[in-house]
Design a protein around this nucleic acid. Structure first.
Lengths: 68, 68
DNA sequence: CATATTTGTACCCTTTAGGGTATAAATATA
DNA sequence: TATATTTATACCCTAAAGGGTACAAATATG
């Protein structure tokens, strides 16, 4: 999920034809945070990520690790 | 997952017969952090949570929200 | 029961996440 | 290609995450 979380959000955002500022505003997170999130930053807060994912009807959950 | 993340970790830890200090040391996170995590704190960092989940072969990922 | 072990809560302290914002780089559009 | 739009990077600043630790509450064990 290292790459997939950021990829997932970027992809979903584009599906909704939203810009980063628009998605940030709709989800109530800061623009800088959203950009770092889409950029793959790992040290982000779970609650903030969920705040964004909620717009897509998703949330963070525990998954089996798909080890190499 | 609000309750399930903390519950999952606490449950997995007990399965391995580990105390909080032991799990904290094994996963390399702080004891205070692990305790807050098991206590259901939401504003925790994704990378730190994954650090713990890795011991159980798991990680955080995007899931469909199981809304009420 | 008494006692040992474990867990939860409460501090202090340092680092940093995240909000805001400006600007450069990249991309899209006319 | 020139121009407008979007995105990435870089700053400042404040609130708070997380490490350490001490102790009370709860739980387990003799």
């Amino acid at each position: 999920m290292n790459t997939s979380l950021s990829g997932f959000i970027k992809e979903k955002r584009k599906q909704l034809k939203l810009t980063q500022p628009e998605l940030a505003e709709r989800t109530g997170v800061g623009l800088r945070f959203l950009r770092e999130l889409e950029q793959g930053k790992q040290s982000v807060r779970v609650d903030k990520v969920n705040q964004v994912l909620a717009l897509f009807g998703c949330e963070l959950g525990v998954n089996k690790k798909i080890e190499v």
